[in-house]
Amino acid sequence: MNKIIIESLSLQYSDGTESLRDVSLDIRQNAVTVLFGPAGGGKSTLLRCLNRLNDLTEVKSSAGRILIDGENILDPQIDVIALRRKVGMVFARPVPLPMSIRENIIYGLELAGEKRRAKLDEAVERSLKLAALWDEVKDRLDAPAIALSGGQQQRVCLARVLALQPEIILLDEPTSGLDPISTGKVEAALQELKKDYTIVLVPHSVQQAGRTADYAAFFLQGELVEYGEGKSIFTAPKEKKTEDYITGRFG
C-alpha cells in the first residue's frame, strides 16, 4: 500500500542550491525506501519536504503535491506540528539536545502535552528498546545524552523520534559518522522497525543502499532517474546512469 504519494514535486531554494525537478514517487507502507545518488541530487531536500522542515529554509519556488494518507501536506492550511509528530526525522549528525537521555526521549511527548509520569516512563523504555539501546543505558537515564558514544547518541535520536509513535521515519544519512558496528545496529533496528513504520532512508553509501533497500530511488541533479524494487535496481538497473553510479563509474 502506498503511504506517501509525491506528485510532480519541484522546488528551488532561494540561494540557488539543490533543487528538485518534477519528481513523482510512491512510497510504500511498512518498507524501507532508499533515496540514493551523488551529493546535491535532491535527496535531502525531498526528505525535508516530507515533514515540512523546509519551512525553515528560504524557498524560491515550489510546485506539486505530497499526499500522506491522502492529505496534501504542502497545503499551507495543514497542522504542521501534527505532521511532524507523525513524520519523524533522524539527522546525519547525532544531535542530542542539551539534557539527559530521558529528557531527550520525552521532549516531544511533553511538548504534545503528556504529563503523566507512568506514560512517559513507559515511552522511554519502549522507544529505547526499539532503538536497541535500552540495555546499554537503562541504568543511567539521567546522565547527559552528550556523554554517550556517537553510535549511542544516534540511537537516542532514533528513540526520541520513536517515542512520539510516528507513522513515518525519515533518516538522512543516519550512520555517516558511525563505526561499522554501530552502523550495523542502526541498520538492524531499521529492519525491525519497518514492520510497524514506513521508512525513508538516505543512505551514506551505495553499499548501505543495497543492504537496506526494499525500494530504491536514484536521484541525479534534482531528477528522479529510476525507481523500483531494491533487488532489481541494484542487480539489474534499467538506466545507464544508475548502472554507472552503482558500479562506481562516477559519484
Binding site: R84, F91, L111, R160
Partner: peptide, 17 residues
C-alpha cells in the same frame, strides 16, 4: 547551535517552545 532548533522543530515544537 542551529541544529538544536532544527531538531526541536522536527520533534513537533513551535518556534516559541
Amino acid at each position: 547551535p542551529q541544529s538544536f532548533r532544527t531538531v526541536s522543530i522536527s520533534l513537533g515544537a513551535t518556534r516559541w517552545q
